[in-house]
C-alpha cells in the first residue's frame, strides 16, 4: 500500500480486526519490521533506522494504544509513567521533571494531586489520558492512535476525542487515527482509508468518502454506523478471511453482494474514480461507477 500524510492532518484508518490496521500502525511505529517498502517521516526513511539512531528518532513519532490498562506498567506511579521518556531523551530530572509532568497532566485534564498515584487508581478514561500525556511528553510530530477510544465508555470517548482534537491544534500534531467506528473516524479525520484483509479498498477525503462511499464494504460499514437500530439495506454475511488462506481475486468477493465474474479471478487495483478518491473494486472502482441499485447483483 502507498499513501502520503500531510503535516497537521489526520488520516483515519477504518477496518475490522484482522484487517491489518494495527499491523500497519505498529510497522509505522517501528515496533515490528516491515517485510518490504519504506516509511519516510520528515524526510528520514524510518524503516532503515536501527539501534541508537532509531531510539533517538523515536521522539518524532509516538503511539497511543487501545487498552489503557495493559499499556501502563502497574508498578509505576503516574509521574514515572509520564516522566520516563523525558528522563531518557532529554535528561530532565528533579523539580524540572515534576514541573513538566504536572504541566503535561494539566494539558490532558489530570490533576497535580494525581502525580503519585498508581495506574490502577485511575479510571479507564484517566488511564488513557495518562497514555496520551506520556506520548506527548516528547513533543512528537506524528501521533499514532491505535483505537484510542474503543475500550472506553461513550461519555469518556467523547471527552477523549475532544481532548485529542484540541491537542492536535495546540501542538500542531499529525495524527494517524485507527478505529473500527465510522462515526468516530468521520469526526477525527481529514482523509480516510478503509482496509479489508490487509489491503486498502477505498481511500478519499472524508467528505468525499462519506458523501458517496463506493466500495461495498465501506458502504456496509457506513450503513451500520448510520442505522440507529433500523434494518440494513445490505447485510454482509460471513467473516473476514484468515490471512493464511486468502481468497483468490478480490479478497472481499466471498462476502460481496455485487460480485461479478472477474471478482474471484483478478485482484482489483486502486483506481482514482475522481480526484483523490481511490477505490479497488471491479464494479465500483471504474470510471463513472454505477449506483448500487443499477449494479449487477449476485445471481442476477
Amino acid at each position: 500500500m502507498t499513501f502520503d500524510l500531510e503535516h497537521g492532518k489526520t488520516l483515519g484508518i477504518v477496518g475490522e480486526s484482522g484487517s491489518g490496521k494495527s499491523t500497519l500502525a505498529r510497522t509505522i511505529a517501528r515496533l515490528i519490521d516491515s517485510s518490504g517498502g519504506s516509511v519516510v517521516l520528515l524526510g528520514t526513511p524510518t524503516t532503515k533506522l536501527r539501534g541508537r539512531k532509531l531510539r533517538k528518532f523515536r521522539v518524532n513519532f509516538q503511539m497511543v494504544f487501545q487498552d489503557p490498562i495493559s499499556s501502563l506498567n502497574p508498578r509505576k506511579l503516574a509521574i514515572d509513567v509520564i516522566g520516563e521518556p523525558l528522563k531518557v531523551h532529554f535528561k530532565v530530572h528533579g523539580e524540572e521533571l515534576t514541573r513538566q509532568v504536572t504541566d503535561l497532566m494539566s494539558k490532558v485534564g489530570l490533576e497535580k494531586g494525581q502525580l503519585y498515584r498508581y495506574p490502577h487508581e485511575f479510571s479507564g478514561g484517566q488511564k488513557q489520558r495518562l497514555g496520551i500525556a506520556r506520548a506527548l511528553a516528547l513533543h512528537p510530530k506524528l501521533l499514532i492512535l491505535d483505537e484510542p477510544t474503543s475500550n472506553l465508555d461513550v461519555s469518556v470517548q467523547a471527552q477523549i476525542l475532544r481532548l485529542l482534537a484540541s491537542l492536535q491544534k495546540e501542538f500542531d500534531l499529525t495524527y494517524l487515527f485507527i478505529s473500527h467506528d465510522m462515526a468516530v473516524v468521520y469526526h477525527m479525520s481529514d482523509l480516510v482509508m478503509v482496509m479489508y484483509a490487509g489491503q486498502v479498498v477505498e481511500r478519499a477525503e472524508t467528505k468525499s468518502l462519506y458523501n458517496h462511499p463506493l466500495h461495498p464494504y465501506t458502504r456496509a460499514l457506513l450503513d451500520i454506523a448510520e442505522a440507529e437500530g433500523k434494518d440494513l439495506t445490505v447485510t454482509l454475511g460471513g467473516e473476514p478471511p484468515s490471512m493464511r488462506s486468502l481468497p483468490t481475486g478480490c479478497r472481499f468477493h466471498p462476502r460481496c453482494p455485487f460480485k461479478v465474474d472477474a471478482c474471484d479471478k483478478v485482484d482489483p487495483q486502486l483506481f482514482e474514480v475522481e480526484s483523490g478518491h481511490f477505490v479497488s473494486c471491479h464494479v465500483f472502482g471504474v470510471p463513472n461507477p454505477p449506483s448500487p441499485e443499477e449494479a449487477p447483483h449476485e445471481g442476477s
Binding site: L31, R55, K56, S71, E84, P85, V88, H89, A135
Partner: peptide, 12 residues
C-alpha cells in the same frame, strides 16, 4: 503493551 509503549518511546 506497556513494554511496547516503553520501546516506542525509545528506551534501550
Amino acid at each position: 503493551d506497556f513494554v511496547e509503549v516503553a520501546r516506542s518511546s525509545g528506551l534501550s
